[in-house]
Simulated assay, not measured.
Amino acid sequence: MLKLALTAAISMMLVFEPVAAEAKSKGRTAVVKRIKVKKHEPAKLVASDNRQRLVRRVIKVRGKRKVVYEQVRRAAPALAILSAGDLAGLNLTHDPLALRSSVAYVLDQDSSEVLFEKNSSVALPIASITKLMTGFVVVQAHQNLDEILTVTEDDVDHHKFTSSRLQVGTRMTRGDLLHIALMSSENRAAAALGRNYPGGINAFVAAMNAKARELSMNNTHYVDSSGLSSQNVSSARDLAKLVSMAHHEPLLRQYTTDPNYVVEAGGRALRYSNTNYLVAMPDWNIGLQKTGFINEAGRCLVMQAMIQGRNVVMVFLDSKGKQSRTADAGRMRRWLEAIKPPVIPAAAAAGVPVTVSAGAGVGVGAAPLVQ
């Protein structure tokens, strides 16, 4: 009797206890709950909600097979996280190239002629594009790239809890940390670079902001060396200035465009890859680049590239979709290869405010959010 009672109790627990499991189904989370079903009754219990169904399962209870039914309800799609650009309505701005980026700016590097612009004066979060200024400050300060630095707990991301392959205690040269920070957007590497600046991270951030003022990046402000904070903001016009100046530094050109790199960390070799796959494409001639992403910023990309014999700086901010920023770069390149000035943008027909520069430039604009 005791054995039967115990078996019954376990069976009841298995029948009524919610299952602590989640399953992925077409990008949605399926919430599973086990329910008690009488024999021949499952068909009656199929819910009218088309997101809910019953699944037959065979389990073992004390070594014996038992048939149970699980009520599976597919969760509604999660609400999309709005970026700062979305909240400002920049995603509603149309352009003649149908870019997925809310902000775009393309500049002839040699003549400073604006070739294309869209919301280019709006200051938005820039995510890991911040690291380009981090690298610029390190190189301009002529810090010893062979000095061994140690990753500490202070370099761990307690803001967005991003992961890292650099364990606390890892010892590495400043040059290698700079390399993987720029090429692979390694957050702990960028944090360690800022922390090991004379005066510490606060002095480093102050140097970043001083450099921004020196370059007349008036819509730019930094609060950390990694870009994890959404308070690191800039405009596309400002970032084009940074890209143009950073392109003069051979080390930044090399580190940002290497397809991959191997570092020694704790006695083991770690292979890092570039976050921008375009650097390995033979049909691209990229001189400098940096990617970035946090939810508040969307997908971001800055690049210097040679297109049709012309040195071009491209900036794309708040792009929607994992590959959309590089796809926008491809759209822009094809457009630049095809245009013959002057070009009158098709966006004008849609009632979008458009300006045309003295050359072939196209502009679609909005007022800046931050001055």
Score class of each variant (00 low, 15 high):
363 G>K: 01
283 D>N: 15
270 L>T: 13
172 M>Y: 04
309 G>W: 04
259 P>V: 12
108 D>I: 04
141 A>E: 13
173 T>I: 07
141 A>F: 08
48 S>G: 05
58 V>C: 00
319 S>V: 03
231 Q>I: 00
261 Y>H: 11
207 A>D: 01
67 V>T: 14
30 A>D: 15
226 S>W: 05
94 H>W: 08
28 R>H: 07
365 G>M: 14
137 V>F: 02
13 M>A: 13
7 T>N: 12
51 R>F: 10
371 Q>D: 01
240 A>Y: 15
24 K>T: 07
62 R>H: 13
360 A>K: 11
116 F>T: 03
346 A>P: 00
203 A>D: 11
86 D>Q: 10
132 L>K: 04
262 V>W: 02
239 L>M: 15
322 K>M: 09
38 K>V: 08
101 S>P: 02
2 L>R: 10
106 V>Q: 06
342 P>R: 03
226 S>T: 15
55 V>Q: 12
168 V>Y: 13
257 T>Y: 00
285 N>E: 15
254 Q>H: 06
310 R>W: 14
153 E>S: 11
240 A>E: 15
91 N>K: 10
208 M>T: 00
212 A>V: 11
172 M>G: 03
340 K>G: 10
252 L>H: 00
151 V>L: 12
75 A>K: 14
93 T>Q: 01
359 G>Y: 05
290 K>P: 01
217 M>T: 04
4 L>G: 03
243 V>G: 06
365 G>A: 12
264 E>P: 04
282 P>Y: 00
44 K>P: 05
316 F>D: 12
110 D>L: 00
271 R>T: 14
211 K>D: 06
340 K>H: 15
248 H>T: 15
173 T>R: 08
9 A>W: 14
85 G>A: 12
241 K>Y: 12
149 L>Q: 11
296 E>G: 06
243 V>M: 11
361 G>K: 06
6 L>A: 11
11 S>E: 09
280 A>K: 15
342 P>Q: 04
110 D>K: 05
93 T>L: 02
200 G>V: 11
308 Q>D: 15
157 D>K: 06
85 G>Y: 05
284 W>H: 08
320 K>M: 08
206 A>I: 00
152 T>Q: 14
312 V>S: 02
361 G>Q: 04
